[in-house]
Design a protein around this nucleic acid. Structure first.
Lengths: 208, 208
DNA sequence: CGGCCCATTGACAGGCATCAAGTCCGGTGG
DNA sequence: CCACCGGACTTGATGCCTGTCAATGGGCCG
């Protein structure tokens, strides 16, 4: 987990935003870097035809909205209630410059933001809805909080569908399939239990 | 086009590589940044099952292999004969630090590398093979060299297929469709003529 | 209790992957 | 110069998967 350790933390201004609200909008100038403290955020891009696409999911520790383009390429919407810290682009660049001189660690924060976008491409190429969904769950597990009932999994199926380029119906059927195979379970709302992680990853690698 | 203007150009060491050869391999440590001078490069990622996916195409002026991850996430293969300059990661980071203090322009070079990867996700979500292919061609035009016969288009259909998550057969049929619609033509090997760019972009936006 | 959003299930049609041939073209070697 | 060869492209027939449309169920919140 990368943090802005070279930035004076006394200026930290932890903010809260409710589920469904937007941190920044696609097309706006990149003026701030958002450091996610708790909750889950989705990146959303709307194509010209009005088609909604979820480009990435972000988790605590991630930094979003890094100024590698002039404007944000996606909107950042809170999936759950979210806490975050907002840094000015200028201060973030200074921190990056300093980090580059030392070890380049902060550069990796960019990789962390780009990674889910990159992996989305790999997921979508995978043939077979079941394989895509399995791959998505398997790769998301490490980011999810655990409690006695299993993983906290507050991501709506609509978002999964738009992330994997599927319809909600197909996602639902794929999840049922994985349940029937005894790989996963949804004991309660927003709770996920994985019974056999190995086989889950096998399904993710298999076609059809 | 971003260049390493703050780096001493006297160390520039222009290298040449033949079509089909590899600049760097997926999984290798990021030790060098490759500044493309001429030719076309494809980013290739092989999934565990051996499925080949083209993650991006790169063109003259692009910088590839930026050290935002520890290891390269894709192999860089020359589509055509290619000339490039190789910079050490350390020197590149110094240049980035300097650029961050001034204007942050070099940060945008990262955006340039990530952009085709990002756009790939948008293309693939698009329903309909014809729309994907049309969108790919339309967005690639500005990068292609022109001569009296049209655009130089040396990208094999297999690569287009692996970039758009389609099969070569489907790409071929989609290209035929665009030809039948009178939007494009392939007068000679590796040569592309666009008759109606507006309608091409319309087709790219339409479903099915 | 009522309304809304999300999840679920079913029937159906269409598009793409798949398999299988056949064609074109450039390069190589005689 | 020509014949050969191999890889990329082309075209056709078929089956399956997933999108679409429609309707119902269920949980949360007002």
């Amino acid at each position: 987990v990368h943090t802005l350790s070279t930035v004076d933390r006394s200026f930290d201004n932890v903010q809260v935003i409710a589920a469904g609200r937007t941190l920044f909008w696609e097309g706006d100038d990149c003026e701030h870097v958002f450091e996610l403290r708790s909750g889950i955020v989705r990146g959303v891009s709307i194509s010209e035809e009005g088609e909604r696409q979820v480009t990435a999911f972000f988790f605590p520790g991630d930094e979003i909205g890094l100024p590698i383009t002039r404007t944000y390429r996606y909107s950042a919407e809170a999936v759950t209630d979210v806490t975050y810290v907002r840094h000015s682009q200028l201060r973030w660049r200074e921190a990056l410059a300093e980090s580059c001189r030392r070890d380049g660690k902060l550069l990796r924060a960019i990789g962390t933001e780009q990674d889910p976008i990159f992996r989305r491409g790999l997921f979508i190429s995978r043939n077979g809805a079941v394989a895509r969904v399995a791959a998505f769950i398997a790769s998301t597990l490490r980011k999810l909080a655990r409690d006695e009932r299993g993983y906290a999994f507050p991501i709506p199926q609509v978002d999964i569908a738009d992330y994997l380029a599927l319809t909600p119906e197909t996602v639902c059927r794929a999840l049922r399939r994985l349940r029937e195979l005894g790989l996963i379970d949804f004991p309660g709302q927003d709770h996920l239990v994985v019974h056999d992680r190995n086989r889950l990853e096998q399904v993710a690698s298999r076609d059809a």
